[in-house]
Amino acid sequence: MDLLTKPNIADPDGFYQELIDSQRDMTEEAAELMNCKLVLILANHVGDRGVLREAISRARGSSTED
């Protein structure tokens, strides 16, 4: 399986707002801890090591942009 790089989220503005809202009342530190948890939860959901590796590399900025 390859990492999905085409838009895949329904209602993107709604999702983005939900993400930002979820941290609105948090300190920077709490929000950063939450981000780490979120990464781990989503990574576990994906599971596939190849996809995770590709995502890590893309997030680092070391793979080519679309």
Binding site: E32, L33, C36, K37, L40, I41
Partner: peptide
Amino acid sequence: TSRRYRDAVLELAANNEFARPL
């Protein structure tokens, strides 16, 4: 940041089985 990831694993481990192997 690596400390934050570590703490995230430790916090999740209480109620999330998936985090325990990490």
